[in-house]
Design a protein around this nucleic acid. Sequence first.
DNA 1: CGAGGGACCCGCCAAA
DNA 2: ATTTTGGCGGGTCCCT
Length: 340
Amino acid sequence: MAGASGLYDIVRCYMANPRKVAVLAFPGMAPFELGVVVEVFGLARPELAHDPYELTVFAEQAGPLAAIGGFSLTPSAGLEALRDAGTVVIPGCPDKGAEPSAELKGALRDAHARGARMVSICSGAFTLAAAGLLDGREAATHWRFAPLLAERYPKVRVRPDVLYVDDGDVLSSAGSAAGIDLCLHLVRLDHGSEVANAVARGLVVAPHRDGGQAQFIELPVSPRAGDQPVGRAMDWALERLGAPLSVGDLARQAHMSPRTFARRFHEAVGMSPGRWLSAQRVAASLPLLEGSDDPVEHVGSAVGFPNPANFRAQFRRHRGLSPAAYRRAFRARRQERPAA
DNA sequence: CGAGGGACCCGCCAAA
DNA sequence: ATTTTGGCGGGTCCCT
C-alpha cells in the first residue's frame, strides 16, 4: 500500500526507467488486455508529449503468436527487452495450470531485482506468483481465479475484493477492465492526476476508480451518463465539492428518499454515498497538492474538508499516506528523470 | 487524544 | 405473489 521506501525510490531511479514499458505476449493470449496496455502506453498521446512512454511488446518465442480470436501477432523483441524495462506488464495468461518457463521466471526476477516495477492484469498474477514475486505480498486477480491463486501460492495474500493492489514495486489488478484502472494509476504516479485524468477522458472511462473499491459493481459502467438520477447527483456533487454537502442533499438532487438513494447509489458505484463523497474530495485534492504550494489546510478546505485534521485523516484513509507525504513523494518522482 | 453529538449505513419490515 | 420503496432503529464511523 504505502509503496517502496524513499531510499528504494532513489536507488530505483538509477536502475530502471519506469517510462520504458515492456508487455509480455504469448501464444493464446487475450488481445484485450494487451490492447489496454498498448492504448495507454503505446499510443502517441499529446498529454504525455513532454515525457512519453516507450512501449515494447516482447515474447519468449519469436512470432507469429496465435491470439484468441483467430489472428496472430509478431512481437518485436524477446526476453532481452526486460533488461532495460522499468515497467513490466504481464497480461492474463490463458492457461492458469501452465508453469512459466524457468527462463521467463528468471528474467522477471532479474527485472524486478534491477528495480523494474512489475504489473499484472487479471490472471497475469499467476505468472508473477510463479516467479515468486508475490510471496508475502498482497495481490489482486480476477475474482474467479482468486481461490485458485491462493491455493496454489499460499504465500500470496490474495485480495479478492479490490480492483487493484499497489504494493510499490509490484502491482496487480483484477479483471481486464481493472487493468485500465491500474494503467491509469501508473500514469498518475508518473505524470500526476491531471495528465491521468486527461488520458482517462481520451479513453472515455471514469477518471479514477480507487484500487480498494469493490470488484462487484452491479452496473458494469459508471452511471455518469447525465440522464441517470444517481449519475446526475454525482455530477452535481462533483461541481461543488468545496461546499458542505450531505448525502441527504444528494438524495434530494436525485429526487429520492435517502434510503433508496443510498441503495441505488450502492448498486451503481459499489460504495456508500458518504464514502464516495469523501473519496472524491480526496481525489480532487491530488492535483492541488501536486501542482501548488498551498498549505495542506488550504487544499483541504478547497475540496470540502474545513477541518485540517479531518482532511489529513480522510486522506490517509483513502491513499495510505498523509497529504504532505503525498506531495513530497510526487515531487520526488517528478524529479527522477533518468537521462534517456 | 478522547469524548460527545451527529451523520451515516444497513438490516429489517410494513406498505405500495 | 413479487418487487420496490422508504421509514425506523441502533450500531458504527465521522466530525468537531
